[in-house]
Structure formats: C-alpha cells, structure tokens
C-alpha cells in the first residue's frame, strides 16, 4: 500500500472503513491446516523457508478451528472423515473461506472407489479449487492469493447478518 510513503508526507490518509477492514482481513488470513494425506506434506512445504507462506501473512497455522479464517482441506476426504471435516468447519467463526487442495479433494480425483467422497463440495462451500495431485507449493500460494483477492472484494456489511458461533455449544 505504500504506507511509509504516506507517512513521509502528511502523516494521514483517508479511506473507507470497508476498505481498511477488508485489507486487514485479507493480509492476515489464518489458515486451519486440515491436513489429511499427501497434500498435507506439500502444505508443510509451503511453510518451509523455501516457499515461505509468511510473505503472505498466513504463516500462523492454527490447529484449532476457532482461531482461523481459512480452511485448507489438503487430502482425500473419505466418508468416515467427512463428518470430522464438517464438524471442524462448523466450529470456525464467520467469515470463513475454504480451499479444496488437490484433485481428490475437489472431485475425488484418481480415487474412484467406494470410500472416497467424490468432491468435498457435496457438503462444504468451496471458494478455490486447486488442481494437481498433489499441487506444487507455488500453486497453493496462488490459491491463497486468489482467496485474498476474493476477501479483498468483500464488504464488511456482507457479514453483518451471519450467525455468531455459539461457543457454549458442545460440538
């Protein structure tokens, strides 16, 4: 944003609250790493020094859903696991986004079998589908940037009427 340059000049700038909120929101997406199988290893690689997800403000991998904004579903979701994924998604506070990482998460991929859910969009709303088996880490960063773009387009009032999560509820 070139904030430093602004500071050099007048020391203030004007903007809308919507813009600053969505800017803050998109620059610090905290992912919930739903690492299930092979893709989880590539997701780990994104955090390592070579690819360094910290450049995008998302290095804070929260292992509890209650502190995260973005769920990266990385790996084959089976019918047995689908209930767990859904339960964890439900525990995330709104607003929340989902990346379906890899072919088998998006569509079942090469697993045309009795136990694999043929695409997690059957029970979750997905924002970004990510191709590859598994996708390269660069590709995951690309997906993250797309999510950021999507978050940047939102308005704060879009989320006003969303139900607040009930933390007293026993999940």
């Amino acid at each position: 944003m070139g904030l430093e340059a602004k500071l050099q000049q007048d020391g203030f700038f004007t903007t809308t609250i919507d813009a600053i909120i969505s800017w803050a929101r998109k620059s610090s997406v905290w992912p919930m790493p739903m690492g299930i199988s092979c893709c989880a290893i590539e997701m780990m690689a994104v955090g390592d020094p070579k690819y360094d997800i910290a450049r995008f403000g998302s290095e804070v991998m929260r292992f509890t859903p209650r502190q995260s904004d973005l769920m990266i579903v990385a790996g084959t979701v089976t019918y047995k696991m689908s209930h767990v994924v859904k339960k964890i998604y439900d525990q995330m506070p709104d607003p929340k986004w989902v990346i379906a990482m890899g072919a088998c998460t998006s569509s079942g991929g090469m697993y045309r079998s009795y136990s694999v859910v043929q695409g997690i969009d059957q029970f979750l709303p997905v924002d970004v589908y990510l191709a590859g088996c598994p996708p390269r880490p660069d590709n995951l960063l690309n997906a993250l940037m797309q999510v950021q773009e999507k978050i940047g387009r939102t308005k704060a009032r879009d989320f006003q009427d969303l139900p607040q999560p009930d933390f007293t509820k026993q999940y």
Partner: peptide, 11 residues
C-alpha cells in the same frame, strides 16, 4: 483407523 481408507486393494 480408517479415516483415510481409500480402497486401494479394491481399485
């Protein structure tokens, strides 16, 4: 176990 049972042997 079984949360990642993908049915390799059947496939």
């Amino acid at each position: 176990l079984g949360y990642l049972h993908r049915g390799y042997e059947k496939m």
